[in-house]
Design a protein around this nucleic acid. Structure first.
Lengths: 202, 202
DNA sequence: TAATTAACCAATCACTTGCTTGCTTAATTA
DNA sequence: TAATTAAGCAAGCAAGTGATTGGTTAATTA
């Protein structure tokens, strides 16, 4: 009952070390191709020790996904909290989401593809966390549609947008010709139509 | 030298049976989670027999990917070969690509994510096959940009479009409220701006 | 008919996997 | 100081893994 006074007793830091290492490896090599030995080695433990902190490999995946999604959702909220204009707001959200995907060491959204490694009950929890992540997007898209900047904000639009963004890790290289800000701008431009000062000729 | 007269000697049909089953299972459960025993069982063979037709599990994946990509590229060419108008052409290509992804029993593009299971040399071959698949897209996008219907056809545009489409298997259900034709239309509308008869009010 | 080959099976090998068990050490608490 | 607990290590198990081997069968060819 009266447990857990201290916010981060030294043990919890090792636990989150494991989570970070696992998330990184799962993204790099995939869930199945990552062994619990890999994860242990990545944090300087022996093969069996992670099982002191987590009951199973699946539990590690689940915790990494939910934790990463919540952290990402928090960054997303912070990035667009006080932006009223829907277009600027969308730009900020796209940029924040790309950041979550591409410049974070634990890109949780990329783990979504590994959900099939989990059981139905766990999948439901993941789905709930992902819904919380998606919610602010629909709000913003609705606002854009209402102001006429977007033709429609029906569900497929949000899903297509997510696809556009979530696929970027397949091809984007941070040492390439495109900064994340430029990429975010390109996305929004593609969605909303013309670039800043161009009018359709025809 | 003078081998292979007959187009499909009875043996080759078993080989392609294996390819089809492997592709389906790889997409369903992932490369690592699919055992060679699963594949053998799916075509009614015993555990060791697939290795008579393929040297390794990796070779099965590689052959399935390249074969699937070539077949998909062919369908793509057939779908848009004689369409001159760039917008109609894009719509046809999007529809064909969605077909390749969502209504084909061997959705090769979905296997692209499993490329990391292959060695560098094999990956290069896959990349070449994928380039052949991508080429007609860039041509069409350039035509759309030239006619002013698209703000830009720079490389990120093609990649973002592919993301939009390639992510659909994550959420699209063929028994859902959206037909593939409607989805294709929604994609094109999102890319090119207004729906058929709507003018921006503002 | 005899020789050859394609296609497959049965058995098994060498290895890896997730996970468990029993023990040790260091810190915390009484 | 004594008792307890958190944290981890060393070793290994049982189940599975991709792949190999040697043989069998039916069809094809000479």
């Amino acid at each position: 009952m009266a447990r857990g006074r201290k916010p981060l007793p030294p043990d919890a830091s090792r636990r989150s070390d494991l989570l970070r290492a696992a998330a990184r490896l799962f993204v790099e090599k995939g869930f199945d191709a990552t062994t619990t030995r890999d994860i242990a080695e990545a944090v300087g433990m022996r093969a069996g020790s992670p099982f002191y902190h987590f009951r199973s490999k699946q539990e590690l995946l689940k915790a990494a996904m939910i934790g990463g999604l919540e952290a990402g959702a928090e960054r997303l909220r912070a990035a667009c909290a006080d932006i009223a204009d829907p277009e600027a707001r969308l730009r900020a959200m796209v940029r924040a989401h790309l950041g979550n995907l591409l410049e974070n060491e634990c890109p949780a959204p990329m783990l979504l593809g590994e959900t099939r490694a989990l059981e139905a009950a766990d999948r439901a929890e993941i789905a709930a966390a992902f819904d919380r992540y998606q919610h602010p997007w629909q709000t913003t898209l609705d606002a854009l549609a209402a102001s006429g900047k977007l033709a429609s904000s029906a569900p497929p639009v949000r899903l297509l947008l997510f696809g556009m963004l979530n696929w970027t890790p397949q091809w984007y290289r941070s040492d390439g010709p495109l900064t994340l800000d430029q990429l975010a701008a390109a996305c929004v431009e593609l969605l909303l139509g013309q670039p800043p000062d161009r009018s359709v000729s025809g």
